[in-house]
């Protein structure tokens, strides 16, 4: 338990720092942004109390907002994304009711399910944040391009993260 708290606290801080220091400066072709910090929301245990999960998500977004001077945008998107976790998880992961909820990681879900689950959340987040940033659907073509490109970039980086931690855990076992 304590080990988990420590692990997720570290991950929280690391994600905010990575986003603020590195990924906030990434904007490929000025459309593809990387919202890598949502990896934390993806990886939060499904068994976590929803209120705690929502609170963590809100403050994760707020932290990133503070670093990137976008008050409210990421905190709003993160809160909404957190609310989307359960339906996304239910859709992507086949499970028996008796079974314990698996950890939403590459190891816990396996490639196929994790792929679907992470992709769903990434696309959701890209759509949320891009719409919030644009605050209108006037230039919907550009908006779609931004959502698609950002989701793809973010998803690739998140898959990278997942596979790194995956091999690490495998070795430890």
């Amino acid at each position: 338990m304590t080990r988990d708290v420590l692990k997720y606290t570290l991950m929280f801080v690391l994600m905010v720092l990575l986003q603020a220091v590195i990924f906030n400066h990434v904007a490929i072709f000025n459309v593809a942004c990387a919202f890598v910090f949502i990896y934390f929301i993806i990886r939060m245990p499904m068994s976590l109390n929803p209120i705690v999960a929502l609170t963590l998500s809100f403050f994760l977004g707020l932290s990133v907002d503070i670093f990137s001077d976008t008050a409210g945008m990421n905190s709003l998107a993160c809160t909404l994304l957190c609310a989307c976790r359960w339906p996304a998880f239910a859709l992507c992961v086949q499970r028996d009711d008796e079974q314990e909820l698996p950890d939403p990681s590459l190891r816990g879900l396996g490639w196929g399910a994790f792929f679907k689950y992470a992709l769903a959340l990434t696309v959701t987040y890209s759509a949320l944040i891009c719409v919030i940033q644009a605050f209108s659907f006037a230039d919907y073509k550009l908006l779609l391009v931004r959502i698609g490109a950002s989701a793809l970039l973010t998803f690739l980086i998140i898959l990278g993260f997942a596979s790194i931690t995956h091999t690490d855990s495998a070795k430890r076992l």
Binding site: P50, I51, L54, T55, S57, F58, G61, D65, A71, G72, M73, S75, L76, T79, L80, C82, A83, I132
Partner: peptide, 16 residues
């Protein structure tokens, strides 16, 4: 949980 989510959304929107 929904209440909490709603509160956070409201705070975010206010900030925004």
């Amino acid at each position: 949980a929904w209440m909490v989510a709603a509160i956070y959304v409201v705070i975010s929107v206010l900030l925004l």
